[in-house]
């Protein structure tokens, strides 16, 4: 892998991470926020794998596998919570989940 490829991958990973972070901050639908978090996690996978290849170390790849497993577990927990909140409140707008305030 050439340095140019590596820099491109790093740039792409960072860009996807930024897009994901922006999505979390500006979107109001929890499912979209959740997808944005997944995008952030997967952009990190890209960065990890790119670094692993550039450094010739397997740690990056192994780390990426762990992230994939954790992301899957997060989906299981997260979707269950989304359905429960929807059943309780009949809305999926995070701005309207304001039962508790200072």
């Amino acid at each position: 892998m050439s340095t140019g490829d590596f820099q491109f991958l790093l740039f792409l990973g960072t860009l996807l991470f930024m897009i994901g972070a922006t999505g979390v901050l500006i979107r109001r639908n929890p499912l979209v926020i959740f997808m944005s978090i997944e995008l952030m996690l997967n952009s990190v996978n890209l960065v990890l794998v790119a670094y692993g290849r550039a450094l010739n170390s397997l740690a990056g790849q192994v780390f990426a596998f762990m992230v994939i497993v954790v992301a899957a577990a997060e989906v299981v927990v997260g979707l269950a919570m989304v359905t429960r909140v929807f059943r309780a409140e009949h809305t999926l707008d995070v701005d309207r989940l304001d039962e508790m305030k200072d």
């Binding site: 959740f34 989940l97 508790m100």
Partner: peptide, 10 residues
């Protein structure tokens, strides 16, 4: 409680 868990999760 549902809201708390959900916010904490996000």
């Amino acid at each position: 409680s549902q809201e708390a868990g959900f916010k904490y999760f996000l």
